[in-house]
């Protein structure tokens, strides 16, 4: 058995400390050690983007990241999107629902985490900027049109209100 290493992370605001094998991926760590199953695994080789999470505010493939690499980091997963006190959906989640931006929903957490990063950095993205941001996420169901519309809807709803 390989030596275990200590990993301390803060996921969606909660602190976790675990002893893990160095080879454990961040995706398996989140899903099976912390029981945060919303981060899905579609290819395990970094192409499909289903497992996208934010590590210190930047999007990362949880399947290509080792849990030990995330030691000391703050991580946001899809479970961190809903308002913890009211349970209300995050505007991005609500926009995906209203825009029919999903079908099977398996890739959706990855798309939403990518969108979260996009809209934090680029609150008013052009269509080309949205496509550029989402170009690393595969969806086999929707054909992307409703995803594009959902992201536009989210951007519109999240835009800081401009003075009249």
């Amino acid at each position: 058995m390989p030596n275990k290493q200590r990993v301390e992370v803060r996921v969606n605001g909660t602190r976790y400390v675990r002893e893990v094998e160095p080879r454990l991926t961040l995706a398996d760590f989140l899903r099976h050690e912390l029981n945060l199953g919303g981060t899905h695994v579609g290819c395990e080789h970094g192409i499909c983007g289903a497992c996208t999470v934010l590590v210190d505010e930047r999007s990362a493939r949880a399947c290509l990241t080792l849990a030990v690499q995330a030691d000391g980091c703050g991580i946001t997963t899809v479970e961190g999107l809903r308002d913890p006190s009211s349970g209300a959906l995050h505007p991005i989640q609500q926009a995906f629902v209203d825009g029919h931006g999903l079908q099977c929903g398996f890739c959706t957490p990855g798309f939403m985490m990518t969108t979260l990063e996009l809209l934090r950095c680029t609150p008013d993205p052009s269509e080309e900027q949205i496509k550029e941001a989402l170009g690393g996420n595969l969806c086999r169901c929707t054909g992307y049109q409703s995803i594009l519309d959902s992201v536009k809807l989210a951007a519109q709803r999240m835009k800081p209100s401009t003075p009249a």
């Binding site: 199953g37 919303g38 899905h40 899809v78 479970e79 209203d98 029919h100 999903l102 929903g105 959706t108």
Partner: peptide
């Protein structure tokens, strides 16, 4: 009517019990 899907709130929340969950 293009009503919102009843499936979606759970799917966007990441709480649906796909088999590996």
């Amino acid at each position: 009517k293009a009503v919102n899907r009843v499936e979606d709130p759970a799917l966007v929340s990441g709480t649906v019990e796909f088999i590996d969950n």
